[in-house]
Amino acid sequence: MKLSLFTAAAPDLEPEPTAQLLAEQGWDGVEWRVTDQRPADQPGFWAGNRATWPLTGLEDSLDEIRRITDAAGLEISGIGGYVRCTDHEGVERMLSATAKLGAPRVRVTVPGVQPGESYREVFARARDDYAFVADRAGELGVQALVELHHGTITASASAAFRLLDGLDPEAVGVIHDLGNLLFEGQENPRWAFDLLGPYLAHVHVKNGVWRPTGTDEAGVTHWEHGWATLRGGIADVADYVDALKEHGYDGWITCEDFSTELPQTERLADDLAYLRSLL
């Protein structure tokens, strides 16, 4: 297994110094974040992230993305895109850009269920959309990935398998995400890996916690979830990596540590050291 970092977790530096930092620390690769983000006074994971490539004008940035990545001696483990499967024009752009970049895979997101909508109907439409995604990805020689993510129709491995079952696993696959599953969709990872089979294409690792926010007048405790260091959250990262080994997974593990206890450089170095120790 090889280790990469999703640049959403590295908001402080521009792409070139980010790549240089990852190379100096000993990471194998990088998963570039691509989206048109909100501006912010200070860099953050989701807004003002300096290591994010804009979706607008992406085609004009491909040579620079490749130059920066190659100069650092890194591989591109994947593209962290945010285009939704319902946006066929946007999907076409992301798949084509991924192919031109020479990257192997790109995330194509799925919707959640909005008030007044039916899960079954949203799911059926997304299934049709992902059939389109699979056809185009196969033609372009790249792989489109569904991420297990809370708040979407594929919060669990079971749901993602149901969405993709019967489509070409060379063209579409699943990102199994340990941290997201703490908040919705948790299933025994060993069973989930077995269920996904050839659709297990990529892995994201982060950790999180549930924190009490107070008790209401009825004596009921309310909770919220948040992110934690790889070592400090609820999930057993060591057991998770062991499960991947037992399954025979030999792909990328991409770190997505959104904790804020440590400065970025120190946080990333510790993440890499910990993950290396588990491998």
Rank of each mutant, 00 (worst) to 15 (best):
Thr7Ser: 08
Thr7Pro: 04
Ala9Asn: 07
Ala9His: 04
Ala9Asp: 07
Ala10Pro: 01
Pro11Glu: 00
Asp12Asn: 07
Ala19Leu: 12
Leu21Ala: 02
Leu22Pro: 04
Ala23Leu: 00
Glu24Pro: 03
Gly26Thr: 03
Trp27Ala: 09
Gly29Gln: 05
Gly29Ser: 08
Trp32Ala: 06
Thr35Met: 01
Thr35Gln: 01
Gln37Asp: 06
Gln37Gly: 04
Arg38Gln: 14
Ala40His: 06
Pro43Arg: 03
Ala47Thr: 07
Asn49Asp: 04
Ala51Asp: 14
Leu55Cys: 02
Thr56Tyr: 02
Leu58His: 02
Glu64Thr: 15
Ile65Trp: 06
Arg66Cys: 09
Ala71Pro: 08
Ala72Cys: 10
Gly73Thr: 14
Gly78Tyr: 03
Ile79Val: 15
Val83Arg: 00
His88Gln: 15
Glu89Leu: 04
Val91Cys: 03
Glu92His: 13
Ala97Asn: 15
Thr98Met: 04
Ala99Asp: 11
Leu101Met: 08
Gly102Tyr: 03
Pro104Ala: 05
Val106Asp: 02
Val108Thr: 01
Val108Ile: 13
Thr109Lys: 04
Thr109Glu: 05
Val110Ala: 00
Val113Arg: 03
Gln114Arg: 15
Glu117Pro: 13
Ser118Leu: 03
Arg120Thr: 15
Ala124Phe: 00
Ala124Met: 09
Asp129Cys: 05
Ala137Leu: 08
Glu139Cys: 09
Glu139Asn: 06
Glu139Pro: 06
Ala144Asn: 01
Glu147Ile: 02
His150Thr: 15
Thr154Arg: 02
Ser158Thr: 14
Gly166Asn: 14
Leu167Ile: 03
Asp168Met: 01
Glu170Pro: 05
Val174Cys: 00
His176Arg: 01
His176Asp: 02
Leu181Trp: 06
Leu182Gly: 10
Leu182Ser: 05
Asn188Thr: 09
Arg190Val: 12
Arg190His: 09
Ala192Glu: 13
Ala192Gln: 14
Ala192Phe: 10
Ala192Val: 08
Phe193Leu: 12
Asp194Ser: 09
Leu196Glu: 02
Pro198Trp: 03
Pro198Lys: 09
Leu200Ile: 08
Ala201Pro: 07
His202Val: 01
Asn207Glu: 06
Gly208Met: 10
Pro212Glu: 13
Gly214Phe: 12
Thr215Asp: 12
Asp216Thr: 14
Asp216Val: 10
Ala218Lys: 13
Gly219Trp: 07
Gly219Thr: 12
Thr221Trp: 11
Thr221Asp: 11
His222Val: 14
Ala228Phe: 09
Arg231Thr: 15
Gly232Thr: 13
Gly233Ala: 08
Ile234Asp: 15
Ala235Gln: 08
Val237Met: 07
Asp242Trp: 15
Lys245Ala: 15
Glu246Val: 08
Asp250Asn: 06
Gly251Val: 03
Ile253Ala: 11
Thr254Met: 00
Cys255Asn: 10
Phe258Lys: 05
Phe258Ser: 03
Thr260Lys: 05
Leu262Gln: 09
Arg267Lys: 15
Leu268Cys: 15
Ala269Arg: 13
Leu272Ser: 04
Leu275Cys: 14
Leu275Pro: 12
Ser277Val: 08
